[in-house]
Design a protein around this nucleic acid. Sequence first.
DNA 1: TATGAATGAGCATTCATTCAT
DNA 2: TATGAATGAATGCTCATTCAT
Lengths: 196, 196, 196, 196
Amino acid sequence: MASGERTFTEDARRAQIIDCTIKALATLGYRQASMARIAELSKITPGLISYHFGGKDELIDAVVAHVVKLATDLMVPRILAQTTAADALRVYFETNLEFMRLHREPLLALVEIITHDRDGPYAKQQETALADIEKVLAWGQHTGEFRDFPLRPMAIAIRGAVDAVPGHLLNDPDLDLRTLAAELSTVFSLATRRTP
Amino acid sequence: MASGERTFTEDARRAQIIDCTIKALATLGYRQASMARIAELSKITPGLISYHFGGKDELIDAVVAHVVKLATDLMVPRILAQTTAADALRVYFETNLEFMRLHREPLLALVEIITHDRDGPYAKQQETALADIEKVLAWGQHTGEFRDFPLRPMAIAIRGAVDAVPGHLLNDPDLDLRTLAAELSTVFSLATRRTP
Amino acid sequence: MASGERTFTEDARRAQIIDCTIKALATLGYRQASMARIAELSKITPGLISYHFGGKDELIDAVVAHVVKLATDLMVPRILAQTTAADALRVYFETNLEFMRLHREPLLALVEIITHDRDGPYAKQQETALADIEKVLAWGQHTGEFRDFPLRPMAIAIRGAVDAVPGHLLNDPDLDLRTLAAELSTVFSLATRRTP
Amino acid sequence: MASGERTFTEDARRAQIIDCTIKALATLGYRQASMARIAELSKITPGLISYHFGGKDELIDAVVAHVVKLATDLMVPRILAQTTAADALRVYFETNLEFMRLHREPLLALVEIITHDRDGPYAKQQETALADIEKVLAWGQHTGEFRDFPLRPMAIAIRGAVDAVPGHLLNDPDLDLRTLAAELSTVFSLATRRTP
DNA sequence: TATGAATGAGCATTCATTCAT
DNA sequence: TATGAATGAATGCTCATTCAT
């Protein structure tokens, strides 16, 4: 099992279990997503999950890695392709919300994990997210696109806006994410731009 | 036990239990805050909590009501006292973050409850919070202080910024909330004001 | 539960559970003596054992403490009452085997625990037992009753003889422990006495 | 698989598995020496062990047979070569402790098995060991080398002394087994010899 | 022969709740 | 009012074993 090499079947099972775990987390919430329920959903026995992942912690780790990769693959290249900080910021909103639109269940699963893992390592990942945003902001200030504001509060506001979306998505599944992305872009474009 | 009338002792007990529950939630997190631990902290027996509150759900309800009242009492009068929408929005940030500064444990307890009770009624309370913000925004648009933007996305951004703070507070207890409030005010002042 | 004070009922339950645990260990052996089986034997639920003892480890600790006290109370005063080292050594055998005769199940339970706890603290207690024997031997050498032999090997032989008894007792429940004690006394009397 | 005939490969595999089981038992203790761990150590799969040995019980049987043969081959010829009962007794200690010195891991594995398998047949093997000792003792009494003592208690003491050694070896790996053998010989020489 | 996958039973523990006193 | 005792369900996990390939 030590991640050295894996058989085809093993990979298939792992993928299946991860999918079902995501479904369980998104549908039932963290607390109800017990090994037993995940197993039931996967139509296998609970022991088999431990066999493939070693334990619940590692299963959760695997889910996080899976979803983060999904998000990263979608977002990072498109953000990096921008040539101005203002564009990067706009695309930051666009890609984040596009990810939520295309991968609703993985998103909700990730949110469940993060919010229930206060002391764990995922809670601390928010610092990384903040730092990434601050890089873009610093870039824009350096090029003169952005006005001279303290980075941290702006980053908190931006990240807060993005993080707020899944909660509203849960209440209103028909929320128009494309329009929302455009509006958030505008909001923070106005807030960051060199004041006329 | 139903809230009909309550003796003085009953009220005192309830208050004591609510306080200890808040402490337990803020200190240990939702999962570790079991009835047994809350009882231990309150120096009473678990059974007595059930006796006074009927069960854990109602205890949590009572905690939420308590904290919400705490926050409302602090914030609402000061927001309502403003004479311009722009001021109201500024004070919205100021009072929200002042509440976090003055009542850190109740705040953290509330956050724990909301994030762990996804299907419960508290998650839906965010709709109310949004509506309140929208009222202020509509007011500002009506008076011409604010430009003409769709209400919902702006409200989501504002509420998101506020909701993001507790998470960062947890990571960095020395976070300067007064400065942060001022900066967030500036951010959304720029985003909402009639574009020059 | 913190051992501060205990109610009468609590003490009774604890005693009952300890008794049943001893019976389970002596009858079924360590591996089969699961919490579930002990609970079944005690006609209570497994959870209640955890309620009273906190967990299996503490239950085992309590059993050990109980049996050790039983043995100590029986043996130590009588050994200390002897005025010659030779007598003390004789009474050491007598009391050890009398304990086995009077408290067969507690003895077997203790043996089960010790042999299954190789890395735990009980395995290390054998060093204490050896040191106690060596004290008596040194005493006898000092008074000139005993010849001049190295202490450790003799202590190992003596303790080994005593420790061997429970195993044979298990195979042959009718083993005559009084005669055996007398014979072991003779063996080590001859081995230790000043050679004529 | 039944022991009818075995191919060369089969025998090699069995030997390899037995070796690894011994290592696992000696290193990790009985409880941790699960089929999975033994398989991991053997660099094969758990299923294969069952295939070769039918199950864990038979694997343990095979380990016991292997170690007992190891011990027997080392000890029995040298004991039988003695011409006096006193010499045989001395060599009994010498060869037993030499076996422990030369084959520490097999010894510890055997001890683990015996102590954890109380109801299994190995516990009853001690009867055989006792009978062997008694033969030597009877021989010595018959030749007049030994005094007239009851056989069983003396045999218990002798076997007890030998059985005590591994436990102390575990606590103190530097225990000098050659000196210990000499001292134990002396002890039981004094205890058995015709009293002057 | 050998593997990897899968099962099912058993384990200790935690928890909200109930109830007689 | 308040307690301490007790329950029953659920949780994550480990293990020996089985079986198709």
